[in-house]
Amino acid sequence: MSWIVLSVAGLLEIAFAFGMKWSAGFSRLWPSVYAAVTGLGSIWLLSTSLRSLPVGTAYAVWTGIGAAGTAVIGMIFLGESASVARVACIALILSGVLGLRLSAGVVA
């Protein structure tokens, strides 16, 4: 269940990033409210997932989902660069997130 909560926190992190963009430096009311609600929700869900997940793993996964998701959505909907190098770097981030998830139960 903690992984699901963490995944939703990551999705809210993506929503928060776009809310900040739309708020124009928090100068527009409703986009600013949207950014605040999604940002606080993301942090609250991250902290909830930390009850049972290691902080280093959870934080890395949370930021990875947010960074990769924001970049991909920016490419699709905002016309941001989709160069081969950029897509390859996003793939590396996602492979790191997946690796952390798959190794979470492995004791070294």
Rank of each mutant, 00 (worst) to 15 (best):
M1N: 11
M1I: 13
I4L: 15
L6S: 06
L11M: 13
L11E: 03
L11G: 14
L12D: 06
L12H: 11
L12V: 11
L12W: 10
I14K: 01
I14R: 00
A15S: 12
A15H: 07
F16Q: 04
F16E: 01
F16T: 11
F18G: 09
F18V: 06
W22S: 12
S23L: 07
S23F: 02
A24W: 13
G25Q: 04
G25W: 01
G25M: 04
F26Q: 07
S27N: 11
R28Y: 14
L29F: 15
P31R: 10
P31H: 08
S32G: 14
V33N: 01
Y34F: 15
A35G: 08
A36H: 14
V37A: 10
T38K: 03
T38H: 07
L40P: 03
L40G: 14
S42R: 03
S42P: 08
S42C: 09
I43W: 11
L45N: 00
S47M: 15
T48R: 14
T48H: 11
S49I: 12
R51M: 08
S52T: 15
S52G: 12
P54W: 12
V55H: 07
V55M: 12
V55P: 08
A58S: 09
Y59K: 00
A60D: 05
V61Q: 00
W62G: 00
W62S: 03
T63W: 08
T63G: 12
G66Q: 05
G66E: 13
G66F: 11
G66Y: 10
A67S: 12
A68Y: 08
A68Q: 02
G69H: 07
T70A: 08
A71F: 07
V72L: 15
V72E: 06
G74Q: 09
G74C: 05
M75D: 05
M75I: 12
M75W: 06
M75H: 02
I76R: 06
G79H: 04
G79K: 04
G79N: 02
E80P: 07
S81M: 05
S83G: 15
V84H: 12
V87Y: 04
V87T: 10
L92R: 12
I93H: 05
I93M: 02
I93C: 07
I93N: 04
L94S: 10
S95H: 13
S95V: 15
S95M: 15
V97Y: 09
L98H: 08
L98N: 04
G99S: 07
G99T: 00
G99R: 04
L102G: 09
L102S: 03
A104G: 09
A104W: 07
A104H: 14
A104S: 13
G105A: 01
G105I: 07
V106N: 06
A108E: 05
